[in-house]
Design a protein around this nucleic acid. Structure first.
Lengths: 252, 252
DNA sequence: TAGTGGTCTAGACCACCCT
DNA sequence: GGGTGGTCTAGACCACTAC
């Protein structure tokens, strides 16, 4: 009864390891610095490599580390704030930092079709865009626009590719935007998005689903996947606020 | 040169496994149904248990599965939409679905102190609340309120506990709220939050950081951690939209 | 007490990057 | 070619739940 029981619930090794590493990152490493490789770190801490990797995985999930196959593990800079504020403008409006990449007709996934209220197998304009911030890709987007939302689009304008993407976006601007709403959830990058984001398939992403309303219905749906490791999504004007984990220095 | 190379990039086993399982979930399992245990599934697919677990982990991350130690793996219901719209009201206003749990003075983490603009070691009112939706806990929140934001709070009111939490929230309502902004990022549940969310430490969470402005400065900061596996954060009025992965039936 | 998922080990080989 | 992280194996034991 009088015994001091510090660990009624024994802490998993990888959890403790993560804490130790996190403290080391704050105090002993600079942003961009390369950590010792996994085999050496595991040996140094006296654990199996798999256990060490469990700790590294969590730190990467929290945006503290960046791991690249064939290169090594580096200390990540603080997450960048990426604004996803409702701007009450259509995608593709002047000033947004998305780059149209492609456009082709395609059947949207069932979840999107249900949001659009289209028939199950009905093809819609599918515009792919990518967003770059701070010199690296942060998001990949698929924008689904039913054919009848942009009736004036001349099919002859551009059969496919970036030119057609721009044409669809241009047509959207003509519509009266009545509103929009957003949802954010956790997902994992599909192969296509992963390549666009310079990550491996399955990497954690924040999926932002936006519905655009016009004519009293959903006129377009955007599904944007943001790199969860490097991005902090901001709503409002908190985009330029710095978040500090601890002391931070720049690698020389 | 004329060979058809279907797999220039060989797909990892766990990735393929995940796809197969996801399809099985859509077509052969009902929500709430219990899957065969990991050892049997691994044997059935001819892989090591660790490999199978990698696939299950991703499906859980995507909100398709729910795993509970000592119980089993069940098919998760679609994620519930949880509204985090800017309501332009203080936390604790009538009608919000947060339950005050506790309040004590405490030194906020450095990141929060920097948002509040308080001194490094300055203690602030720290209110803990929890949010329940659909009968289960979805979020845990720590609300940091500097002492001078609620100067009229009589310390004698309640020394600690839920009563004091309510007292702090009550005082907040008196202030003129000038604005708020939010940021969403991925994190992992700390031990404390994990218990509150009925998850293991390290579980993926969506961290919503909200700044409340009054007197031309940041008068309070809220850090809310939402279960990433069960929640879809909604901004706007898309909260009641159904998202379907595929066919869905109810377990009998 | 039996069965589940969670943790951990000590190996092996592979895909990728850089030089 | 040498070094990195990524995948995979076949075990073992532990913590938890339910009966």
């Amino acid at each position: 009864m009088g015994t001091t029981q510090l660990e009624t619930v024994p802490e998993p090794k990888y959890w403790h390891l993560k804490t130790v590493l996190a403290e080391a990152l704050d105090s002993e490493f600079a942003v961009g610095e390369i950590l010792p490789n996994e085999r050496e770190l595991a040996a140094r801490f006296g654990v199996a490599r798999a256990t060490l990797r469990q700790a590294l995985e969590q730190l990467e999930l929290e945006g503290r580390l960046q791991r690249r196959r064939g290169v090594g593990t580096t200390v990540a800079p603080p997450r960048m704030g990426v604004s996803v504020s409702p701007l009450h403008t259509w995608p593709g409006a002047a000033g947004d930092d998305w780059e149209p990449a492609d456009c082709a007709p395609g059947v949207p996934p069932a979840a999107v079709a249900s949001l659009l209220g289209t028939e199950a197998e009905e093809p819609v304009h599918t515009v792919r865009r990518s967003r770059v911030s701070g010199g690296q890709p942060v998001a990949a987007e698929l924008l689904y626009v039913p054919e009848d939302s942009v009736p004036d689009l001349s099919a002859i304008d551009a059969p496919a590719g970036p030119a057609r993407a721009r044409a669809v976006l241009r047509e959207l601007q003509r519509l009266g935007l009545e509103g929009e709403d957003r949802a954010v959830e956790l997902g994992s990058a599909r192969a296509e998005d992963a390549k666009q984001l310079d990550r491996l398939p399955g990497a954690p992403v924040l999926v932002v689903t936006t519905r655009y309303f016009a004519f009293g219905r959903t006129a377009a749906v955007s599904v944007a996947t943001y790199r969860a490791d490097t991005c902090r999504l901001t709503f409002g004007d908190s985009g330029d606020v710095e978040i500090h984990h601890g002391q931070e220095r720049q690698a020389s």
